[in-house]
Amino acid sequence: MLGNYEILKKEGAQYERRLRLFQSWHENVFKWHENFVFTPNKVVNWTEISKPMNEWKVGLVSSCGVHLRSQKPFDTDAHEGDWSYREFSSDINPKELMITDSHYDHSEADEDINCMYPITRLHELVNEGVIGSLSKTFYGFMGWIANPKDLIADTAPQVANRLKEEGVDVILLTPGCAVCHQTLAIIQNTIEGVGIPTIMTTLKPQLTEQMRVPRAAYIRFPYGFAAGPANQPELQKQMIKEILSLIPEIKEPETIIKMPYRWRGQIG
């Protein structure tokens, strides 16, 4: 346990259950995407935060396929995926954002982008003095990347270095679909590697733990709700605040915290 939060242990019946789920997914993913390359992080990077939370400059990165409506959409049909990224000001009107990704249902995020990309909630946390400020630039990837070799060699380090140059203290990351979890874990570990503490939300802990990431918060929601339920701003804000506050509390890499939130929306 970490305070009142449960840490997912890498042993016991629940771990074995998650491992079976991962193995089942890993066997089946090739039926849908024959060129998929499972690429776990070989070394897990680790950076500790020394500043208090109310002084943090926080950045936001997602693999949910978010971009400005005026920007070129991601290529969802690319054989090996689209490892490019989109950057935009953290001060933009959230209505200017949209999602291009055909691998999960983001219809509710199309109405309330904050359930995937909590830009408004982060501004509110700044206004309330919970965190210090936001990075000038936020980033979006489209996480369906079958073979992440160019992500690892090119675009993930580019974004990590830009965040470092901007002096960002902490990065929050949110995933889209299953393969997006792999993409995000690679981006997260790359950012952590340049010396910025990170935390990702995960909807698929069995994959995230095999990918090996510095820190993750498991929320028991379906794809499309990586930052909370749609149109529930207070709950979204509470979740984001709690998830960020875990960063200094987690003392070891590869820690996944099970958040005390349960999906109550529609299933179909």
Partner: peptide, 10 residues
């Protein structure tokens, strides 16, 4: 139930 929803999402 969440897995069923995830799979039917696309």
């Amino acid at each position: 139930l969440i897995r069923i929803r995830n799979i039917s999402g696309p």
